[in-house]
Write a protein that binds this DNA or RNA. Structure first.
Lengths: 224, 224, 224, 224
DNA sequence: CATGAATGAGTGTTCATTCAT
DNA sequence: GATGAATGAACACTCATTCAT
């Protein structure tokens, strides 16, 4: 009864300390010995569980994306209002990103370290799934008329992810005591006015917006 | 007469190829030999110019911040209108970030690699100066009444930097042919309505917001 | 009733797969895990039977020498003619060497891997016994006048062993469909004319022989 | 003037000590540190010259085959008599095999350690060339009628190589003071009578064909 | 002034062996 | 008795840096 738990706990601990080290020093600059020591084991024991340092990183990222997905799915389940779902998703994403688990940070910022092609593909696929889920949320809101017409939904997601994911870069030093939820809501407030159609905007708002000018370039199929 | 020029060119080349390699593989995963080879020299010659690999990185970052500062300063010089200065600064920042020079990217994303404390401080100081310049632009706009009251200006900058700096993560694959300037203006469009006071907004609410093309593009399943 | 049998079979299987791996990759380059896996067990189980990898090797070699000795003894039992006994022994030796059991090959060619002194001695003793048996066969033939006088009997054995043991190096690629027995007889034919006294040579043969000088050295019991 | 010499000498020393260690312990059981230490350098310095332990082995083998080829070619150059050329080649081959340079031994007996396919091919090609040279010598002798008709020339070479190459296994312990040349001539004596046509054999059956000289060396107690 | 051969501390990883179960 | 998770010493190899030239 204790055995499976211990093994799982031991692996979780390993991933936790690895995430912390990777976040602080970067993947390449962190040694297997450091990770093992911090987890209270020896390098050989670490390799008993993970064939390579990179396999550990991949496992880390998979866990990160799993937690992210789970957390966001759970958050949006409480309401069917598309805009509210978006807001709650934003909160959940940021909450996980800023949590004690550094794995999401590592996934976002130590991307290049995954050199193995199949591993890279596996992670890209998971990220794509996650992003597709967000696109779904946004598309829902757009479909129900809660987003201004002619908004480029893809750019909306890309800018949003940037602003939110970047929070991890400054939260520790500049949050000023704000909680992840407060940060998320503040961002929501910035975006909302520009993004949502009239009836979804605060009452005191009316006004037009900014023309990029000229014709918009066609949105071509995404290749990588 | 040619010698000093060559030396400077050689150093520039060194920083260029180093920036490219650091961006692609990360600082820690790039070897001095790779950099030297790519620059057509030998490791010993590289160390003749830079005491250490890290010193080269610092030099790289200093150059990056210098170019960023210079470019943004130059861009805002053409007008005295605070909002327009902000928009032009945004364009300039993004233009440099997405330029052939990978140094800005490296500065933003290979931050943790600078372990030397004094070097780290030096760079932090330069970054702070750059950010203070942005804060100045924003305060200017706020002071002249072009930004809604009650907007948290610091959060505004942090979110904005996030969204814009993140563009480097997706530009290559998802820009869809848009120029850095178009991306910057699209972001400007998103933010503007939520950020600016009424009298700075386009008079016509129905005017083309940011038409990135006809109807909202369908959200296609993301393939990578 | 089935248990002891299984255990013995299991050990035989272990030695078989180990012999195959040692032959193909060499002792040092073969891992215990490979052997265990190939035998359908885990490293721990292998060490339950053999204290060390080297102990397994020694056991392997002992089995090899046992089989060799048994096979050769059996082969010579069918006749009392000394020369014929030698020929049959040659056939039997080669047959075992080229059989599916790679243990003899390993014993001959992975000699240096036995580092343990007592184990080494044990094997050397067994090899010496086997070689003494051969010397006995040769001495028999010499004593009965079937070998030319003044032939160095020890050199005869050493050259013969070399030629025959080396067959294992080329048999797979260059046997050209010849059976071990055919190879043995071909070698026999080469040696016979030069080695044996007139009345043992093919009828069309006469001719001189080779003086290795003086009288044939006495064949003393071989000790090592 | 001293530099190139030193570098070459240093490499030669490296190969020499490596050959000695490989011969004594086997390739896989020899560590890079051992080789480096024995050569008076550090592992890093060894890898500066050879990309891998295996590359060193390959280099070793190439040198071995080069020396073998050169030595044998040189030896046969002194006469045009085919049988005599064969005898001299045998002497030369054995002389190199039993020389202080253990590389030939390693090439013959640590064959399986070369895992790299292209390296393996390169060595196989060199070995093939060497063997083809021997076949040439044998065909020459056969063509000039010095070898009995109906002798399988390929088997002749294979048996001969076996007997001669195997000498390396026992020379140290069982040579009894015989020189490589004496061993070669003794082997020649064994083979000659069986292999060569009548007119090439000594006319006088009692004449010392290949007199090893003096009295037969005493068979001393074998130590290992 | 510039080089490139040489270094050695340190890396990720392996693997025979142990031992609690 | 038999297992397989865990170990840790040792491995081949890397690479930023040095220094004689």
């Amino acid at each position: 009864m204790t055995k499976p738990f211990d093994a799982a706990a031991s692996i979780d601990k390993l991933l936790d300390v690895a995430a912390g080290l990777f976040r602080r020093k970067g993947f390449a600059a962190t040694t297997v010995r450091e990770i093992a020591n911090a987890a209270g084991m020896l390098p050989g024991s670490l390799h008993y569980r993970y064939a390579s340092k990179e396999a550990l990183l991949v496992s880390l990222m998979e866990r990160a994306i799993g937690r992210l997905t789970e957390s966001v799915r759970e958050a949006v389940a409480s309401t069917r209002d598309p805009a509210e779902r978006l807001r709650l998703a934003l909160r959940a994403h940021l909450r996980v990103l800023l949590s004690d688990d550094d794995a999401v940070y590592v996934m976002l910022y130590d991307w290049r370290a995954v050199s193995n092609d199949t591993a890279r593909e596996a992670i890209v696929r998971m990220r794509d799934t996650y992003e597709a889920f967000w696109d779904g949320l946004i598309y829902e809101a757009a479909g129900s008329g809660q987003i201004r017409p002619r908004i480029d939904l893809k750019l909306l997601r890309l800018f949003g992810f940037g602003a939110i994911n970047w929070v991890a870069q400054w939260y520790e030093d500049h949050a000023g005591g704000r909680s992840p939820e407060q940060i998320a809501d503040a961002f929501w407030a910035f975006m909302a006015l520009g993004v949502f159609a009239e009836d979804r905007r605060p009452a005191d708002e009316d006004g037009a917006f900014v023309a990029l000018g000229g014709a918009a370039p066609p949105l071509e199929p995404v290749r990588r």
